[in-house]
């Protein structure tokens, strides 16, 4: 459903995404992992046609995003939890989007109920100005916008940010359920433990390049039983876990070339 090939994007000489190639299949949650600044969000924006690539292609259902006839009914995306105008109600935000997608008003109430912004513990939070929402509520509103068109593809960038433990549990179940219904779900995160609970296939990037197209099980095995160790070894922090458990080196902004263990561009699996 998602097919990225040779995708490259630089900003002012700094390479953000470097010859990235991967596919994402339906029916399972695919984790999109990488250190801060590794190019996850840029890749998401390239997939959504929000940024234009310098080279390569990003296809959804076989076509570039900008060619989709009903984008909202094909792809649902959460890039930034607070991507709405603060003076408008959550319901108003969704009603406007529903109009753009040619969707009935009823659909707005359905997703508001689904994410708990209407008819639940939060009361009718959807009727209040969204600027007053907590980060967790904002995250729910953004998810509602993504689900509005009942899309076959979901792109979620750090969807757990700002959620309380119950919210995290709820979001995790929802993401898994969406994939189980046959949707293509790409979830970016820097939370390794969360990926272990949610994802099957993993796409690991560093410095904008593909480090591995692997799975949670495979990377865990490589980390001798720890997904985190497997990830740290892959992203070039192999020496850190022993001395400083859990430490991830801060990526420098001009860290354009991939770290030492990076495979040749385009290789699907990191060789051992």
């Amino acid at each position: 459903m998602i097919s990225v090939h040779g995708l490259t994007k630089s900003y002012g000489g700094r390479i953000a995404v470097d010859d990235l190639t991967f596919d994402v299949q339906p029916g399972t949650v695919t984790g999109f992992l990488g250190p801060n600044g590794s190019g996850k969000s840029t890749t998401m924006r390239l997939l959504l046609g929000l940024a234009a690539p310098d080279a390569g292609t990003a296809l959804i259902a076989g076509v570039p995003y900008r060619s989709l006839r009903w984008p909202l009914r094909t792809v649902g995306a959460v890039l930034d939890a607070r991507a709405f105008q603060p003076g408008r109600s959550g319901r108003g935000h969704l009603l406007a989007l529903a109009a753009a997608g040619g969707l009935p008003r009823q659909r707005v109430e359905e997703v508001l109920t689904q994410v708990g912004l209407a008819g639940g513990e939060l009361g009718d939070a959807a009727g209040r100005q969204a600027g007053g929402y907590s980060l967790g509520m904002a995250q729910r509103l953004s998810l509602a916008a993504a689900l509005l068109g009942d899309p076959a593809v979901l792109l979620l960038d750090e969807p757990l940010n700002g959620l309380d433990p119950a919210g995290v549990h709820w979001m995790r179940s929802l993401i898994k359920a969406q994939a189980a219904q046959g949707r293509t779900v790409l979830v970016s995160s820097h939370l390794i433990s969360e990926m272990a609970l949610t994802a099957g296939p993993l796409i690991v990037i560093g410095g904008g390049r593909l480090l591995a197209g692997t799975t949670v099980a495979e990377l865990t095995a490589r980390g001798r039983g720890s997904l985190e160790n497997g990830f740290l070894a892959l992203t070039g922090a192999a020496d850190y876990p022993a001395a400083f458990p859990g430490a991830v080196p801060a990526p420098s902004p001009d860290h354009a070339p991939a770290p030492a263990p990076a495979p040749a561009p385009g290789s699907e699996r990191n060789s051992r």
Partner: peptide, 11 residues
């Protein structure tokens, strides 16, 4: 507000 990304993803 960052809403531009939502708008231009929708349209």
């Amino acid at each position: 507000s960052g809403m531009a990304r939502v708008t231009f993803a929708a349209v």
